[in-house]
Simulated assay, not measured.
Amino acid sequence: MPLFRLRGILAVALCCTTLAAAAEPDSGDRYRVTMTMKMAGMSMPGTTTEVCTARAQPVSEQSIPKDKDCDVQNFRVEGAKASYRIVCTGKNAMTGDGEMETLPGGFRGSMKAQAEGQQIAMNYEGKRIGGCDFATESPEAQGRAITAQVCEAQVGSVLSHAMYVGPKAACPTYKAKFCANVKREMDNTTDPARFADADRKFGKGIWDAAEGCGGSRAAILAKACGRAESGGDLDFVGDYCPDLVPRQCAGADPNRNGRFLVRHCAERARTLAAQQCEGRGYTAMQSSPYRAFCTSYAAERLNARNAAAQAEPAQEDGAAEAPASNAEPAKKASLRDRLKSLKDRIGGN
């Protein structure tokens, strides 16, 4: 049974106290409440807590706290006793029958409930031990204070948007402050490097926050693409701005934008590779101004081949035997050998 539902049952008991004490503004009665519970054939250890309740409130159906999907039925008051039935539907469905009795200086009561196929029996007894400031010490007031602390602590985190925006927001009064922080973050995110970093680290969460505060990923990306294109950051253009790619392929500098050409301008990349990379020896390649481009081209082709090989179904029969356990481990290729192998792959089919 969900813990919050058990707490709600106890809150029902505490809310229904009615004592003949003189009413004072913004004050209440402090009770020491002992509760015992049995569930699934087990007796839980008794718990004792102190609670501040409103002073001398008449018992009524409206005085019973409940979730939005719960209804109080058959509420009756007979002398010093009250009884009721509570029915909750939805994800945390529950039904329960409760009663309580007001005593001189305290109260006692019981609740029998059924939730998730389990029977729960609870008994409680409260004794008044003094007064309290209901405005600040009641469970509701303490809950509001804790909520405010959490809302304040998370207001700087754009990934906490569900707490501040939307119909189920727990901190709607903090929305303006939260959205001011989001706007500052989004203004920085129009920088291409920051956009890529945020998109990689936070994904959908950060853009949901932007949309909740009146922005959008598309609008921010459009600004980042404009800055990337004007600043010559063609890797970003290729990765995030497909509409801008065609007009950048013809003029992209192979020495600066090799990765962009290889990944996004296949036809020009193949032409350049045939002209500048294929058939060159190791020494010639090292002195070529197209060395970086040729290396990128070879690496991308190698990655494509590896991906294709991994996609092929594993061999079943006739597979190469695993090397013997006593075989010597292969020696690591030297840097010169690796560069030569890379050069050989450039012109491979």
Rank of each mutant, 00 (worst) to 15 (best):
I146W: 02
R5H: 11
A228P: 14
K201H: 03
R301T: 13
E50L: 02
A322D: 06
G41F: 11
S334E: 06
T17S: 04
P167R: 02
G96R: 10
I220C: 00
R256C: 00
Q149D: 14
I86E: 14
E321W: 02
A153E: 08
G117P: 07
P246S: 03
V59A: 04
A198K: 14
G215F: 02
A145G: 05
M163W: 03
R336Q: 00
W207D: 07
T136A: 05
A307V: 03
G79S: 09
E300M: 07
S60G: 07
F195R: 05
F195N: 01
S334T: 12
Q119K: 12
A327W: 03
A324T: 05
V12N: 07
S60A: 15
Q149R: 08
F75G: 11
Q119Y: 07
D208G: 11
A252N: 09
E78T: 11
D71N: 07
D253S: 13
G215Y: 03
R345W: 13
Y290E: 02
N188F: 04
I120N: 01
M163F: 05
R301Q: 15
F75P: 05
P58F: 00
R263L: 11
E185C: 01
D239C: 04
T89L: 01
K204A: 12
D199S: 15
K168D: 14
V51F: 01
D97M: 07
L103I: 03
E61V: 11
T136K: 12
G215R: 03
A314E: 13
R32A: 08
C249P: 08
G258L: 00
A330C: 02
L14K: 08
R338P: 00
A333W: 01
Q149V: 12
I346Y: 05
A320H: 04
R200E: 04
A21I: 15
M285L: 13
Q248T: 13
C171Q: 01
